[in-house]
Amino acid sequence: MSKRIDVKDLNVYYSKFLAVEGVNINIDAKSVTAFIGPSGCGKSTFLRTLNRMHEVIPGARVEGEVLLDGDNLYGPGVDPVTVRSQIGMVFQRPNPFPTMSIRDNVLAGVKLNNTKISKGEADVLVERSLQGANLWNEVKDRLAKPGSGLSGGQQQRLCIARAIAVEPQVILMDEPCSALDPISTLAIEDLINELKDQYTVVIVTHNMQQAARVSDKTAFFNIAGTGKPGKLIEFGDTPTIFSNPTEKATEDYVSGRFG
């Protein structure tokens, strides 16, 4: 239940502005891949092209191919909704649905699509997803309470539970810990380690230690200057990127000399 992603010559545009240029990358199934790079280099933009969330923004478009186990996401006739139900996403800021209870938030992917599900199955799904997101023990007594009453870290794990409840092949995370304290961050990092047994995980982070701790492979993005497109500079095994990178820019960035 996880698939690999291969990206070929991807250019990403906001209207006329070329934000990311010429990305080629191969992401293995059941692995954790980290995207690092300075602010504005297009990490979020690129990540959002991997589940066709990019085109939600008016004027945004993409050139090139993204293959999910060989099937092009951007092929003619591909329904973005199908793509998104296979490739889930967790956002930088926790965004539980304010009108729904904790339980309904977890079931959102099912309920919003009007899929019929018995109460028993729903209970199992809620417990399994919340267990998977390391949140079950904290919320099992108040599943009917609104999701917005949780702490920021709990909300973020609720969003992860919501994402894994639809059983995607791939989970994309855009700086999932940037609003969290070290303990919640640790909980989520542990979670990512567990998730990779079942899912392909891609995570954007500004935290080098985090990238080093959780990821198998690391991709370094950089930008030549404002108004220029972001590019994938180097992609390789995480230990190599952090200790022995080929590119000078990567070495400067990971050793903290710039960016």
Partner: peptide, 15 residues
């Protein structure tokens, strides 16, 4: 963000 959260779960726009 709420719209995007729903889209990312594979929910159609009208839903």
């Amino acid at each position: 963000e709420l719209r995007e959260a729903a889209y990312a779960l594979g929910v159609r726009k009208w839903r």
